[in-house]
Design a binder for these strands. Structure first.
Lengths: 214, 214, 214, 214
DNA sequence: AATGAATGAGAGTTCATTCAT
DNA sequence: TATGAATGAACTCTCATTCAT
């Protein structure tokens, strides 16, 4: 679909691209392929076709399927899909902050690439375990610590209550995870509506639990 | 399971089993294989070996890999892994009821087969979509309706507050989903501890949100 | 089609038959199977099904596919499909004799079993060469000699002319062979009409060539 | 043909050929294989070996056995093996014309490929029925019509008699068909002599029947 | 950087055949 | 005599990968 150029059809003649560009396109193709079929059943040929070159052409850029898989995850796991921590400093109403938070964490679900990466993480966790561990250590854990630190600060400042959720704030995004699963398990059709409802419930739940009661 | 024991070695001669039992063992083997490798990369030979017969022997029972996959899901998706709805009638303290609920919903996570099925649901959702839709319609939705009805009754009786969570109680199990993802993405090693912590936070969160405030 | 008994369907229970009877049915089934698919692609299972028993049941009667094939040809090649020689003694008009001859040699073409055997002879001539040689020696050659002797007698008696055809009378049936090929190569639909026309031409040709001119 | 020569041994390294030539060699190999074993029992590996490449290499050129079979017949059935009609214009003696005709129609029997195609036509008529029908319509029928038209012209000019054979001249080649069957059913050894004798009888028979009597 | 032709190593599947019942 | 379960061997076809160009 996103074969970018004009000559993507059958007779598409040898199109020379700078390696970097081609690699980018290969990874995009590989991402969808691995997500849909899984590593084992993914084929180089389909990836090649999606990226607009021949099967053998792939090997000008990657020595092997495995290497491509690794490079893919490496490139996609440099950021948690929860990109940056949520900050609330009390300078505006909590409700608005929560709205922003919800907006921020649900938006990635609309990106098929994000969902694709997450599916790969679940289905290929064995094969990718070393990359996943590294990602966890270098990206996820720091993110969570940072987030928890910010929340702790809020508690200290009396901006948030000291309760189960604020003490392990990570759990506060669990409805998002649930929405993700809906998307993964049930196709987009019916699931989208459920996701929307989960999201609203999520929002209100946060209000309920993060509000400081007098 | 019993293939590791006596007759597993090379010389293990033709072992005749009634079709029904052999099929049961084949499905158990197939479940793990499909979960670990995905449908496409799963091999009949490995499934056969695990079930204690030859590759060709599998075809005495299933006409194809696809048929085995279907029968597997058919047999495994007759129940939601959330087997029965949670009932609270006020005859005992809410805390205890919550404890029971938590116990009930987290226990399945200890069963590798349950986790395996769930992994398959996420990675093979395309291939299995017709089975999944049916499962959703016949098993999941009825379960959720029933559960919501019970909760609505609690609200009516004043046993639970009328809030975002009780109005869409489904979301109340979201930390469980999060725990499942931890298990799927990060192997058992580090993840188990996180699951335990999620579980405790889950318990307290429920207390916080389901408690009726004066 | 000719599964003779009532219980030929799916649940057909073990039906014990005298070996001789069963063998006859097996050979009939095998004949069609070998003819349609060729020896190599014929399957015991299809033969078994056609004969109304299970695959393994076949082995109660024949030690192997090969043995069944041999027995089949042995049973079918005891007669030339040109069963008996044509006799003309001048006691009635030649035309009538020719009519009888044509009738006699074309009738077998209506029998699917005969056509099936002939197809096997052509497609499996390598595999069956020893049987075919024997058939040629013991059946075909004697038949041809006998026929030629009868014709020679006619010539001697002045009942037939002494020409190329009567000196190698075997060739006189060549239009029949041509008709057979039509049947084998082109299905029954269009070919049948051609066969009829070949037959009439054949009849008239014989009149033309066998008639003694003054 | 050239695979027996230099590079046939074990160590024969990857030999790169333009697709067109390789396909030609593959079809030649396939022709013999299908003829000897029949479609069902033919194996890709044997075809590959004969054509001098690996089993998988075949699939660089044909997507499936079926496709190769179709291409084979397509390429071999573009001409009737009776290539061109026989013309007699009276400018030279009929006997010579008949000699030329006999020569022309019997020569193809010496070509193993022709015999191979004909065997396939008879044994695989079911599988190839669509191709055969097309061949009949586009090649055989036109040939026969043309031939009949030429003969009709001879009759009109008084160069040939108006009799059963000339009115349906197609039958005039029936001894050739008989010879073909000899070749197909009985191997080359004994059959060759019979073919020669059939041929001579055929020649004389034509003289007998096509000669205009005063 | 890119390709078409080629291959070895499997994969799913079929099948003649065996064996316990 | 008959069968259901089982298997080894062989088959078609796929795929990651190589190599000459």
């Amino acid at each position: 679909m996103n074969n970018q150029s004009v000559e993507s059809g059958q007779g598409a003649r040898r199109q020379y691209l700078p390696a970097q560009q081609r690699k980018k396109e290969l990874l995009a193709a590989a991402l969808m392929e691995f997500s849909v079929h899984g590593y084992g059943a993914a084929t180089i040929e389909r990836i090649a076709k999606r990226a607009g070159l021949s099967k053998a052409g792939v090997y000008s850029h990657y020595k092997s399927k495995e290497e491509m898989f690794e490079d893919l995850l490496l490139s996609r796991l440099t950021s948690s899909f929860l990109t940056k921590a949520w900050l609330f400093d009390g300078s505006y109403p909590l409700d608005e902050a929560i709205d922003a938070f919800i907006e921020q964490i649900y938006t990635p679900l609309d990106d098929p690439e994000v969902v694709a990466v997450l599916r790969i993480l679940m289905s290929e966790s064995d094969r990718a375990s070393h990359l996943i561990q590294r990602w966890r250590r270098e990206v996820v854990e720091p993110y969570l610590s940072e987030q928890q630190r910010l929340i702790d600060a809020c508690i200290a400042k009396g901006l948030m209550p000291d309760n189960a959720l604020t003490r392990y704030f990570y759990v506060s995004i669990s409805p998002l995870m649930m929405a993700l699963q809906k998307l993964l398990v049930f196709g987009d059709d019916d699931a989208k509506a459920d996701v929307a409802r989960i999201r609203e419930t999520h929002r209100e739940l946060l209000r309920l639990v993060l509000e400081v009661k007098p």
